[in-house]
Design a protein around this nucleic acid. Structure first.
Length: 946
RNA sequence: GCGGGAGUGGUGUAACGGCAGCCACGCCAGACUUAGGAUCUGGUGCCUUCGGGCGUGGGGGUUCGACUCCCCCCUCCCGCACCA
């Protein structure tokens, strides 16, 4: 073998040497316009900026498999391309390091989670370095670093010390609320003043309760998702559709508990409408839209004795068809509306066999709270419920409608109460069927309608009395008419509701950020002063939360921090002398750290601020009027569609409202990279066998000589199909690995891993190497000759296409065009003929973002002293992109029958004449009638025969 | 059920409404070789009576011309799902 062939061994040594040099020279240090990291900014001051970012990894003990780097390499290639193409590029990386797995491992081993987490971070950092990514590692941090979570706690304080002003549609400092309440220019928001007395008459403690109820971060007792198996409560976003924990798959129960909440619902409308301003995939925007779940309709008030039941409906037009009301079992008016005894002759279906309404209600409420979501699903959608023994008056018809409770009405949505219209709603129809309730149709179904609830369009019927007539109107006119009537008569108003609920923000875990909150003698929360941040996690003997049997729904959460007795009780002087306070013992959810990490990259060591506003404005700020600002390219998995991405947008908007950032959104452009899956194999018993040891022969798959079945799935230990970047780099080198991953499809596409195909990328790099480097001497084998026209055309076409591919995250087409150019050069310049320098150099530059190490090495052997990372990316010369002559297809009736060669600028007539002159075409046209000729210059000629 | 996305050789994929399958894996053949899991060269959608015919999930439509645009259907993937 020639001594200087590009072998895996040579690739290894080249890669390690360049990785060392990059680190030594700080090649990827990105200068800030100001502050600690501003050295060298003059070099890039006139460049446009580009902030390119990955969703940072959770440092799991298993390290990275070949699926993880796909996105990291996508951003790396992009950031290298943008740097070469004249941008000041920021491409940082960090670690999302609080969370359950480290804590669970700590519980098992007794080791502090910080120890294992930091070991994992070290291992993953080494893996990333070995991939050759161009992160500015000076900006790397982990969310567990006290210097970072100090500012997570500070942002929590900002949220805690803010309220949402619905008139201004933005968050404002809580002090401004207090001032307005004191001045009497604002009244407490509905539901925030339990006493009902005017602000001026409230005691200090009562006032604090009113103010606390306005905060964006607030403590609230409400039914929450309690997961005994994990020993913690969870947010709605962390509970799966079948009522289990996203992590660990344990059953989740609804229990009323006092927990910290974040008022994300105040931002529902802005989170929804600002999606339109983002460059995200339509499918991802849709997931957020669905999660926010806006619906418009009306609130309608039904008088029930001394009480009033308010319902929400999207179909106020069907009010004439409402035949009963249903409240959620937990609705606050249930007790007040429950009759003392059943009236004579009460329908046994309505009473559930109970002696009194109170008994029936109590039994039903108990049953509803016990049932997990899973049980409810298992039981299907069978409608259950009980009558309260009372009724409420339909404001439009004056008729009294029976009031039920049923678990198909949900507490947290709308008003927790509905008017049931069985004629036009499938769920109400089912309930009416089961309970023998009347049906009044108010929309005319089509003639062929076969019964049941009719939810389609049609003219209104049966909707007329002395007060109002809707008959004959269509849906939207009827809604407008009835809503106007309701408003006029004080029975309701138009309204909008959202599925989005407030974000449950506290967890009963050890390994998370402590709240910067203490409680005073009145048991009311007080934020600790900024000077006392960070509130450090205390050392404890036992990291485990108290967990319970999976199905123990009577258990109560017990945070691990509550056992750190010395930490919990603290004496502070908050301005009124030393007093004893009790610390908050819950910790923040894992999502807190990822809600703002992108901002910290900009200014990672700042101990005075969470980020210098000038740096935020430079890297994140809006570029034009109406622009949201934000990270220029954010790449990560689609699994965070309604978790991290929604939470981070919410925090960012609060920070924007409070004037801390100039950008309205965190992530201007978002791309979800595809997943890499791999084949897995099962033996006759259905057990997975090591995929690496399976051989294929004659279309069959064999493991130790036995036939196995091929499956396809996630890479991992459980399917025994783990492939790591480390072993691929060991076998081929990092550049080959990079080129392979980037060549298998556009970034957004999922694809299978196929180790045996990696050799194709290895061969490409070997061919490029051979074009540029003499395998015998190791010297560059270029000559200062002029390329031929063919070669110039091939080169400039490649430049054009590679630019397109790299700029649109379609790295596969960039690699295909580089391959084409390389194959051309291999053929045009044989072993004895050196490639012109003016072709070899741009070839190396085209390859540099994809295979940076080998590109650096070739660039250096071509005599260049500086890193290729900062070289100018080639620009195609226009004159080589157009040919003198072009091959044009000649079609007869749309079928290609010949090719003719014509000047590139030939007009339609010339084209047609050339086509008619072709011998084969003459044959086709002979004796036929040409009905029409379509000639498109430089494209084709089509003869349409009659 | 509702809403999205996608169906192209054995495989991953490529094609401003204009020559379907670029590039690669695999496979076949050849060259160089003691050897090949190296390298280089050529071939490789299917059928064929070697003229050609048929081919982008199926069926229709628009068009001189459709992988591409429109309608219906099938299959797969993803999200949501008693949200009033």
């Amino acid at each position: 073998m020639p001594p200087h062939r590009y072998t895996p061994a040579l690739a290894q040594s080249i890669e390690l040497a360049w990785q060392d040099r990059w680190e030594r020279e700080g090649t990827f240090h990105t200068p800030n316009p100001t502050g600690a990291l501003s050295e060298g900014f003059e070099r890039v001051a006139d460049r446009p900026k580009a902030f390119v970012m990955d969703m940072f990894p959770y440092p799991s003990g298993a390290g990275l498999h070949v699926g993880h780097p796909l996105g990291y390499l996508g951003t790396d290639v992009t950031s290298r391309f943008l740097r070469m193409d004249g941008h000041n590029v920021l491409h940082p990386m960090g670690y999302d390091a609080f969370g359950l797995p480290a804590e669970q491992y700590a519980v098992q081993t007794g080791q502090h989670p910080r120890v294992t987490t930091e070991a994992n971070i070290t291992a993953i950092a080494a893996q990333l370095r070995r991939l050759g990514v161009d992160h500015d590692t000076r900006r790397t941090f982990a969310t567990i670093d006290p210097g970072y979570y100090k500012w997570t706690q500070w942002i929590f304080k900002q949220i805690f010390e803010a309220w949402f002003d619905p008139d201004a549609d933005k968050a404002r400092p809580i002090a401004e609320l207090v001032a307005e309440l004191d001045a009497g220019t604002r009244q407490p928001a509905p539901g925030t003043n339990e006493t009902g007395r005017p602000w001026a008459e409230l005691s200090e403690v009562e006032r604090r309760r009113v103010v606390d109820a306005h905060r964006l971060a607030y403590r609230h007792e409400a039914p929450v998702n309690w997961c005994p198996g994990l020993g913690t409560v969870l947010s709605n976003e962390e509970v799966t559709a079948d009522g289990r924990s996203e992590r660990g798959n344990f059953p989740v129960f609804r229990r009323p508990l006092a927990q910290w909440m974040m008022r994300i619902t105040a931002y529902a409308e802005r989170l929804l409408t600002d999606l339109d301003r983002l460059d995200w995939s339509e499918s991802l925007k849709l997931m957020q839209r669905n999660w926010i779940g806006r619906s418009t309709g009306a609130k309608v008030r039904f008088v029930a004795g001394v009480e009033t039941v308010e319902v929400f409906t999207t179909r106020p037009d069907t009010l004439f068809g409402a035949t009963y009301l249903v409240l959620a079992p937990e609705h606050p008016l249930v007790a007040a509306l429950t009759a003392d005894r059943w009236p004579d002759g009460a329908d046994p279906r309505w009473t559930n066999g109970a002696a009194t309404p109170a008994e029936a209600v109590a039994a039903y409420q108990r049953q509803a709270s016990r049932r997990s979501e899973l049980d409810r699903q298992a039981e299907g959608r069978e409608k259950t419920g009980v009558w309260l023994g009372t009724g409420a008056i339909n404001p439009l018809t004056g008729r009294e409608l029976p009031v039920f409770i049923a678990d198909y009405v949900l507490t947290g949505y709308g008003t927790g109460a509905i008017m049931a219209v069985p004629g036009e709603d499938a769920r109400d129809w089912e309930f009416a069927e089961a309970f023998g309730l009347p049906v009044v149709r108010t929309v005319q179904p089509p003639a062929d309608f076969d019964g049941g609830a009719y939810t389609g369009a049609g003219p209104m019927i049966n909707s007329s009395n002395e007060r109002l007539s809707l008959d004959g109107l269509d849906k939207s006119a009827a809604i407008a008419t009835v809503t106007e009537w309701l408003v006029q008569h004080g029975h309701g108003e138009a309204t909008t509701t959202y599925k989005l609920r407030d974000w449950l923000f506290s967890r009963q875990r050890y390994w998370g950020e402590p709240f910067p909150i203490v409680y005073d003698a009145d048991d009311l929360p007080i934020a600790v002063p900024d000077s006392m941040l960070p509130v450090l996690l205390p050392e404890v003997d036992d990291y485990s939360p108290k967990t319970f049997a999976d199905d123990d729904d009577t258990s109560l959460p017990e945070p691990p921090l509550s056992r750190a007795a010395e930490w919990v009780t603290v004496t502070l002087d908050l301005g009124d002398g030393p007093k004893t306070y009790r610390r908050e013992t819950n910790t923040m959810p894992n999502w807190a750290g990822s809600c703002w990490y992108y901002l910290r990259y900009l200014d990672p060591a700042n101990d005075e601020r969470f980020v210098d506003p000038e740096l935020e404005s430079y890297w994140m700020g809006p570029r034009s009027a109406g622009d949201t600002g934000g990270v220029d390219l954010y790449v990560g998995g689609v699994e965070h569609a309604v978790l991290h991405l929604l939470y981070a947008r919410f925090w960012h908007k609060v920070l924007f409202d409070l004037g801390h950032v100039s950008s309205e959104e965190p992530f201007r452009r978002l791309v979800n990279q595809g997943y890499i899956s791999a084949f897995a194999y099962t033996d006759a018993r259905g057990f997975y066998v090591p995929a690496a040891e399976v051989v294929e022969r004659d279309g069959q798959f064999l493991f130790e000589g036995e036939r196995v079945t091929r499956e396809y799935g996630k890479i991992g230990k459980s399917l025994k199909n783990m492939v790591t970047p480390d072993e691929m780099i060991e076998a081929f080198g990092a550049d080959t690995f990079r080129v392979y991953e980037m060549s298998t499809g556009p970034l957004e596409q999922s694809r299978p891993w196929e180790t045996k195909a990696v050799v194709g990328s290895q061969r490409l790099l070997q061919r490029v190497w051979r074009v540029v480097v003499d395998e015998e001497t190791g010297q560059a084998r270029v000559a200062d000759t002029e390329p031929g026209a063919d070669t110039s055309r091939a080169l400039n076409r490649a430049i054009e296409a590679v630019r397109d591919g790299l700029g649109t995250l379609r790295f596969n087409i960039a690699i295909a065009r580089i391959t084409e150019l390389t194959n051309h050069l291999t053929q045009a310049y044989g072993p004895g003929t050196a490639v012109p320098r003016s072709v070899a150099e741009p070839l190396v530059l085209l390859l540099a973002p994809l295979a940076p190490h080998v590109a650096e090495e070739m660039w250096s052997r071509l005599g260049q002293a500086d890193s290729v990372a900062w070289a100018q990316f080639p620009v195609a010369e226009e004159r080589w992109l157009v040919d003198d002559t072009v091959q044009v297809a000649v079609q007869v009736n749309g079928k290609v029958r010949a090719q003719v060669s014509v000047p590139a600028d030939a007009d339609a007539a010339t084209l047609e004449a050339a086509a008619r002159a072709d011998e084969r075409i003459v044959g086709y046209l002979d004796g036929a009638t040409v009905r029409r000729v379509v000639a498109v210059p430089s494209r084709l000629v089509n003869f349409v025969l009659g």
